[in-house]
Design a protein around this nucleic acid. Structure first.
Lengths: 272, 272
DNA sequence: AAGTGGTCTAGACCACTAG
DNA sequence: TAGTGGTCTAGACCACTTC
């Protein structure tokens, strides 16, 4: 542990009045900064479901005293979790666990935009239609992306996304059937919002980050049919691995985008 | 101003012993948090060239006392500038203004990667060949992207990038000739590293962020010639606006990427 | 008025770098 | 050994939200 700074160790020894919640004092950990340990403790509470999406955490002073750290240290841990899109602060109200609602999804994970669009304009929510659903065995590509074994059971789901009524994106996603036990086509067909919301609400899995790899290809027969394109049209194919805590892969998705009137956008180094 | 917290205002009134450097006490600014004002002051010192790329800033305690703020407030300002890729901290050594060396460029702005490459592997630096250079008048597209007038003078530069000896990317960039007065073809042909390094060292302009818009198109005649492709091959076209402080556009670049063996990669929400 | 997060200060000690 | 950034604490007050 960090040891004897400003009487920290002494404080710890005295603390026998068990604090509220699961906020027990941080265990010793050599070399690791205290605020990192606090961060891990908070992540555990969220991963375990003790604090669910959209829940309000206890106040900063309550958490700090519960974990027996100073409020500055607690704030530094929360700062990082806010930057990592795990928590959201709302002044005067509290600190909340992130929730994958539609606007959040749009902002963080949906990067298809109409070309020549003035920036002031709102982008519309994409309308999603589920076009296929199957239970199958993982291909080598899927197994590698999801970190599972070749032939392990997966769900494969095909979705068509329309923007302003026109089909623009064809998504095919694969998720482990072991992680998402008992998933049904109905859940995909009937959901009113992003699948990340479904993962989070029905399975407690929060998608935090993703890796995209984009390339240009000729539209396949299937893609042409689903997006209404002429054979051989150049389309953008994005391979995405979506990840949760600890960079554990959750979903592998291949999106085919008709880029005749839309772009795949990306910000290099976001503004603060 | 923030007013009478812990005797802050009183401290200010006393301070007449002019501190070293241009680190004069922060002027009053209603409502704006002090650390934001500190941040602006630091940005100004960097923009003005008082601290050049790769320079070491004065120590945190020196800056804090110079600006008459607490060290915690100064650190918060520096924290943000580090996140925005303006400053770099090196424990034990000091805080430095960023320098666009090759490895930094690669990490932050060059997002083309070989497919099926094991992650542990280093990517090689792209070898750049300047294939064209001209002084011209801005098209509507260039003018809009660069925030200049239609017909204003620009430099247009074409570069071919090779990876492992094979041509993969064809870049065409446009920059304002008013901003980059006196630029010569020689500078582009002879430089040994990224153009962002050139902008920074020769013109004091630091590229901090960029917006990319990617789409799939059929390779044009020119592109086929330069990248050695068959006519009609689908290629990825990335339109980039590179920006400096205050999101001022500096460069507009169209990159055409042969994605037969490479991908354009993008991270959604970076890890901390 | 009470409770929350946001800002600011002051000062201590730790970890790393370099002469 | 001296100087730098990194961590941690303690406590004050501000701004916002809700009742």
């Amino acid at each position: 542990m960090k040891s004897d700074k400003t009487g920290l160790a002494a404080n710890r020894r005295l603390a026998q009045a068990r604090p509220q919640l699961e906020l027990t004092p941080i265990a010793e950990a050599s070399g690791v900064p205290l605020y990192r340990q606090v961060k891990r403790a908070l992540i555990k509470l969220i991963e375990s479901g003790r604090y669910a999406p959209a829940d309000c955490l206890p106040s900063e002073s309550a958490i700090a005293s519960g974990l027996q750290v100073s409020i500055g240290t607690l704030r530094k841990a929360v700062d990082e979790l806010v930057l990592e899109n795990v928590l959201i602060r709302r002044q005067g109200k509290g600190t909340f666990v992130v929730m994958h609602n539609n606007s959040r999804f749009l902002f963080q994970f949906f990067h298809v935009e109409k070309r020549d669009q003035d920036l002031s304009q709102e982008h519309p929510y994409p309308a999603v239609e589920c076009v296929s659903f199957e239970r199958a065995r993982a291909t080598a590509e899927e197994a590698s992306a999801l970190g599972i074994g070749l032939g392990d059971p997966v769900f494969r789901v095909g979705n068509r996304l329309k923007l302003s009524g026109l089909p623009v994106v064809y998504d095919r996603l694969a998720i482990s059937a072991l992680t998402f036990k008992g998933l049904t086509e109905k859940q995909f067909v009937e959901r009113s919002s992003t699948v990340y919301h479904l993962y989070q609400c029905d399975y407690g899995i929060t998608v935090l980050r993703a890796h995209d790899r984009a390339r240009a290809v000729s539209a396949s027969h299937d893609v042409c049919r689903i997006l209404g394109l002429r054979p051989g049209t150049p389309v953008l194919e994005v391979h995405r691995i979506a990840m949760t805590f600890g960079d554990k892969p959750v979903e592998y998705r291949v999106s085919t985008i008709n880029t005749q009137h839309h772009d795949y956008v990306s910000l290099l180094s976001k503004r603060i």
